[in-house]
Design a protein around this nucleic acid. Structure first.
Lengths: 257, 257
DNA sequence: TGTCCATGGATCATTTTTTGATCCGATAGT
DNA sequence: ACTATCGGATCAAAAAATGATCCATGGACA
């Protein structure tokens, strides 16, 4: 891990639940030496991505992030476009709907609209979703560049539940099915009792840039809800792509004749 | 400049006017070697702060910034709180109002509400304001920790116009006046023809964390508008502090008896 | 169609930076 | 008063970063 990656990995410890950290506790959590951690924090502070309280000496995320986030959304308004769509789907289905985007850290959750029901699926913003064990991941793989999917299949696949697809042949089958149908189903592959339907959000190149998924307790799933959710995520994914890029060419799938 | 600072400095080239960069052009602009620039961009991409287009190979800011910005605002809602206040002041005065915060990169502009008049002052978000040459800077210095102001006065002060306060004694006088009155006046110190009134926004420690300013063409300034603007920025700064921190103790100034 | 130029990208000897064990002063808790 | 933990500083050793040079590719132009 390069020095830059080390420094930025520190930023990822700051969450809504833990918005402030002392030096020593962050070093412990990050498993970096205290001196190293401090040097990295000082560099981040000098660059405006971190701020240190003058009194408590604790660290928080800095205002420099706000400008960068604004530039990002101004140019590529994924959240601005997707959040209303997710809200609509969550309102229509009363289930948890979440958006994820594929990047340097894998398929990362960007936004979640939770169901109002007490018995609901919770997903954390910032969480990385394993590609083989989630509906979002499989939907993404089904419409990703062929060699990304191919190299993923060669990796050692972690089992999260006894339903996780850890055999490459079975994962490949699921990817093919998703490519054919335009959506994927996640049947307790990442967590027992959770059922999901996901669709890929396509970019200008025709490949998936991320996914949108509806997640619910398995016990609440029926054939009727499944059909409705399939329609909803496919429609939502299409709406997000269209609003971001306009009408587009056919998707380019991992599998092609 | 550390490697981490170098990497993050690349992020700052991404603006609303230049949201995408190719490798070679960014290297030229940053005055880094192309190989160095690429390594830094790859590290940023691996961390989700930068994304590279699969087709054009150009770089843009990454979605990882969105989550971090959200955590920051969730914990310290400076923009969320301040933007409505800036809008109110801009509506009431019909002049440009801008917010800046002091951090690792100095006093950086976070938000601007421009006047609707054709003849208006424009300020760029992200721009660093020189402390000695702007009303915001002087307001900030007047309520900053004593040794910050003291060490700033020892620096070589750049002249931006013939009105810029480059003599330490005169800057010190302006700081003292601002400390006494609770606001500062910027009379063409940074740009000819621009007149500003600024007030410090105080943090929990009683020191300034940033400033709010009203900027207008000098030619439009009258004694009456100046009085109104003084009231407006002081009220706005107070409102922002109170909403962020609640009622607070007396300000701690650079100068104390 | 061929040439030229600029692109993004890779390499590795050399240079520079980073690292972390150790020590320090300060503060809080007992 | 003592102990533990904090944030912070130092510097010999270790590791990473650097950038000159080379490469393949694609676009512009004649």
């Amino acid at each position: 891990m390069s020095t830059v990656e080390k420094a930025i990995s520190l930023l990822n410890f700051f969450t809504e639940d833990a918005p402030e950290w002392g030096l020593s506790e962050l070093a412990r959590q990050a498993q970096f030496d205290k001196a190293t951690t401090r040097r990295l924090l000082v560099a981040l502070a000098n660059s405006g991505l971190i701020e240190q309280h003058t009194v408590t000496r604790r660290y928080q995320l800095g205002a420099g992030l706000l400008r960068l986030a604004r530039v990002r959304e101004s140019h590529f308004p994924l959240l601005q476009v997707a959040v209303p769509v997710l809200r609509d789907v969550a309102a229509a289905t009363d289930e948890t709907v979440h958006l994820s985007e594929f990047g340097g850290r894998g398929l990362v959750t960007l936004h979640v609209e939770e169901s109002t029901k007490a018995n609901r699926v919770s997903v954390a913003v910032g969480q990385t979703l394993p590609l083989h064990a989630t509906a979002s991941g499989i939907a993404f793989l089904a419409f990703s560049p062929p060699q990304l999917a191919k190299s993923y299949l060669r990796k050692s696949l972690t089992a999260f539940t006894r339903h996780t697809l850890v055999q490459p042949a079975r994962l490949d089958d699921a990817i093919k099915a998703a490519a054919e149908h335009g959506y994927s189903r996640g049947e307790q592959g990442y967590e027992d009792g959770v059922f999901s339907i996901a669709a890929p959000i396509l970019g200008l190149d025709g490949y998936a840039l991320g996914s949108i998924a509806i997640a619910m307790p398995q016990s609440r799933s029926t054939k009727a809800t499944t059909e409705r959710h399939i329609q909803a995520v496919r429609g939502a994914a299409q709406a997000i792509s269209t609003r971001l890029f306009g009408e587009q060419p056919a998707p380019r799938q991992a599998r092609v004749a």
